[in-house]
Design a protein around this nucleic acid. Structure first.
Length: 425
RNA sequence: GGAGAGAUGGCCGAGUAGGUCGAAGGCGCUCGCCUGCUAAGCGAGUAUACUGGGAAACCGGUAUCGAGGGUUCGAAUCCCUCUCUCUCCGCCA
């Protein structure tokens, strides 16, 4: 959510910068709504001040028969207040509902562009391997090795669900542990294991609601949602809190499954593990001092990249343009891993700086000093990494001519020293 | 799922025949004093949001005692609904 006063004072600029997102946000109604709200507020508060004063006078008179006039008068004032308050409540509801649908203002550093074609590649790492054979896509590898069972996944649940089996299941678990150990042990994140369902407030705090309810799985009987990313529960850990400046930055990592409806992606990535309704992810989340959020984004990005470097998987980093960044983000870098089976780079992590956008929605503040007044923190998060897609990258990059898959060195301790996944016997 | 108890400021904890309660007291914290050091002691201060004025320091108004609604001139205190926590029973990994 944007600062209402900031919008009020910089209406043209805000509108112009939001326009670079490509989504038509119309702020024309804002000024009028905001003006009416403040006028009404003045009016009702003046009446309340009067009522408070007179009620106080009434309380000091023992013989109430002497103040029947005032009491009658105040009865009328109270009725007016009630009517004005109701009007005000409706206005504020409208204003809040509107503000919750306005996306974040992109950073001035975010490249301006309309689509992902305008994203800016900022680096490449690793050599793209060449093979003496035609590299297969992971779904073929996984089925041939009998470690991924797409048909039974579909039988158990439906499309976009997969059953992992044997070494496949173990590899997924190994990746989760490897990533968590790396981020907690070397990068100093604190591990969290949050609920996988959250309430409406949490979803609103990080920006999934109210606009993107169609992307979420909702429970029947209770107003809870399956989390689409650990960003939601982990960022909301400090919702409504005032943190101490000296505790910042706070860095958390969490493994969770993620659940997404993938509405509107029919026919996209229908084969394999790339786009699932349920997938595993290790997430990185930071709460930082506003002055440091750009630098913290760089280090968070580097922490995520480190996973791929240790696994020796080639990747590139892309900075998303204004037309491609998410609703809540002001700046985003995607990490894309090379997939030889599909001869392309695919997103495996998305690292964003949200500025104070989520902090304002979720009420996450800090005090610089014990006595200074609370300010909103900046929140950041990024995948570190998407586990299923990392498994995909390993299958495709580490495949051998004989159909087996070599396990990256760093994962072997997590795999009972297994060096490769071979043909099922 | 059944029965009961509770939710007050950073924390603990008063306050229930409605007004003098934004809220006693204690702890913590900040600043100052005192003290050979430490501890103790003394004094002052110590919520947030919105809003009006002001260049600012700051001053004024309103709201907030789990959330929402009601009664009343006036609600932390009375009534209703909801949420959460705790205890006991049942069920259960």
């Amino acid at each position: 959510m944007l600062d209402i006063r900031y919008i009020r004072e910089n209406l043209e600029e805000v509108e112009a910068r939001l326009k670079t997102r490509g989504s038509g946000v119309d702020l024309s109604g804002f000024r009028e709504l905001d003006g009416r709200r403040r006028g009404l507020l003045q009016e009702t508060e003046t009446l309340k001040a009067l009522r408070n004063r007179v009620s106080d006078e009434i309380s000091r008179v023992k013989d109430k028969s002497q103040v029947q006039g005032q009491i009658a008068e105040m009865r009328e004032v109270s009725q007016n207040i009630k009517a004005l308050d109701e009007e005000l409540r409706l206005l504020e509801e409208q204003l809040a509902a509107f503000l919750l649908t306005v996306p974040n203002v992109p950073s001035v550093q975010t490249p301006v562009g309309a689509t992902e074609a305008d994203n800016r590649e900022v680096k490449r790492w690793g050599d793209i391997p060449s093979y003496g054979f035609t590299p297969k896509p992971h779904w073929e590898i996984g089925e041939a090795l009998d470690i991924l069972d797409f048909e039974r996944g579909a039988k158990l649940t439906g499309a976009r669900f997969t059953l992992y089996k044997g070494a496949g299941a173990r590899l997924e678990r190994a990746l989760i542990n490897f990533m968590l150990d790396l981020h907690t042990g070397r990068h100093n994140y604190i591990e969290m294991l949050p609920p996988f369902m959250v309430n409406r407030e949490s979803m609103t705090g990080t920006g999934q609601l109210p606009k993107f309810e169609d992307d979420l799985f909702h429970m029947e009987g209770v107003d809870y949602f399956l989390i689409p990313t650990a960003e939601v529960p982990v960022t909301n850990i400090h919702r409504g809190e005032i943190l101490r400046g000296k505790d910042l930055p706070l860095a958390y990592t969490a493994y969770t499954p993620c659940f997404r409806r993938e509405a509107g992606s029919y026919g996209k990535d229908t084969r394999g593990l790339i786009r699932q309704h349920q997938f595993n992810k290790v997430e990185l989340v930071k709460f930082v001092h506003p002055a440091h959020s750009d630098g913290e984004l760089e280090s968070l990005l580097d922490n995520a990249e480190e996973v791929l470097r240790l696994l020796d998987l080639p990747y590139r980093v892309v900075e998303l343009c204004t037309g491609d960044i998410g609703f809540s983000a002001r700046r985003t870098f995607d990490i894309e891993v090379w997939l030889p089976g599909q001869n392309t780079y695919r997103e495996i992590s998305s690292c964003s700086n949200f500025g104070d956008f989520q902090a304002r929605r979720a009420g996450i503040r800090f005090r610089e000093e014990e006595k200074s007044k609370p300010e909103f923190v900046h929140t950041l998060n990024g995948s570190g990494l998407a586990v299923g897609r990392t498994l995909v990258a390993i299958l495709e990059n580490c495949q051998q001519a004989d159909g087996s898959v070599l396990i990256p060195d760093v994962l072997r301790p997590y795999m009972g020293d297994m060096a490769k996944i071979g043909q099922a016997g």
